[in-house]
Simulated assay, not measured.
Amino acid sequence: MRGAAPESVASALESGDPLPGTAGFAGRLPDGRLVRDVLGRELCYYDDGEWSHDPEPLRNPTLLPAGHVYESGETRRVWTLPDPAVDDERPVERVREAIGNALDDVDDDGLAVAFSGGVDSALVAAHLDAPLYVVGFDGSADIDAARESAAAMGREDDLHVHEVTLSEIEDAVPEVSRAIGRTNAMDVQIALPLYLVARRAAADGFDRLALGQGADELFGGYAKVAKAPEDPRVAADTVRGARREVLATLPDQLERDVRALRAAGVEPVTPLLHDDVVRAALARSGEWLVSGDVRKRALREAARAWLPNAVADREKKAVQYGSLVAREVDRLARQAGFKRRMDDHVTKYVESRR
């Protein structure tokens, strides 16, 4: 069992508590049952009586769905993410306490921080005595933001900048595609910068990488959530409902990201996805998720206890765009003859490199 003591997981199964105070777990209990936490923060695969935390050792691996148990050849759901009533008493304080406690529990040993300069990774960096790593192409928004935020936080000497090259991306495309088991353009473009920053940290001797993952999904960081119900990408008619739709995508995203990071030689550490932070986020009203043009309002207000306002307020592009990786993968696809007029030309390029 990874992520939690077997007895704690067994207790959560008995009580039905989907958020029992862990940072995620998956694996085999002493009685033989396989289990995976409600958000899928850890991985568990099975095949013909065998199981593994990674798919490679198994002939035909099946990923155990998040919130499920596997026993006697069948899977069944045992946990569902709570949908609590709004409780906006001391909203900022509750979020701040949950984040602070989650980060205080993180061990700094062998740890580096993936730092792109936004509020999520800056929150993690502010609490941890660990070096900061950012990757991107020369002139990318992520590198500029990381430098500016590190300077504002007095951490510029801790920042390691790795400017990637086109040939480096070209070599990494098939490696990442194989590692995550996917060829679609979006997944590969998202996984690439994670893989590259993890590989750089691993080369410097670190075997754990802390990330700000989950904050956008939990606290309303996406434009489609902020624009609900007008945005056609979500079916919900409220910000909270749209946030729940986005949260449902986390298990699939986490499988991709965990596999990419492990292939690069590090174990991910995601304190902003701790159960206590999840509980604090779920109780917030829509106005504490999105207020006017401000997304992740509760998170940003909580962050001011540790971060300069300029960092707490910073808006940032998604990693595949902020690092310019998506742009350069598109360039590689076109150079290889996969023109934009072709349907899903980048995916076709990735498939040709497998």
Rank of each mutant, 00 (worst) to 15 (best):
V239P: 01
A242C: 06
P271D: 09
V278K: 05
G265M: 11
R284Y: 02
V269A: 13
T238Q: 10
A283W: 00
V239H: 00
A260D: 06
G265E: 10
V266D: 06
L254A: 02
A242H: 05
W288H: 12
T270S: 12
A264H: 14
Q253Y: 13
E230R: 12
E245Q: 10
E287S: 15
V246G: 07
W288I: 04
V239C: 03
A235N: 12
R233W: 05
P229G: 01
T238I: 08
L254R: 10
E255M: 02
V269H: 14
A236H: 02
R259V: 06
E287M: 09
A283N: 05
V246L: 13
A264F: 13
P271E: 08
E267I: 07
R233S: 11
D231F: 00
L289W: 00
R262P: 01
P268Y: 04
L261E: 13
E230Q: 07
L247P: 02
A280G: 10
L250G: 01
T249I: 01
H274F: 14
R262L: 03
G265W: 02
E287P: 00
D237A: 02
R262M: 08
D276N: 12
A281E: 04
L289Y: 01
E287I: 03
E255D: 07
R262Y: 05
E287W: 13
R240L: 07
A260C: 10
L254W: 02
A236E: 08
T238P: 06
D252M: 09
V239F: 05
T249K: 07
E267S: 13
H274R: 10
R256P: 09
A281S: 11
V269S: 09
P229A: 04
P271S: 12
H274T: 02
P268A: 15
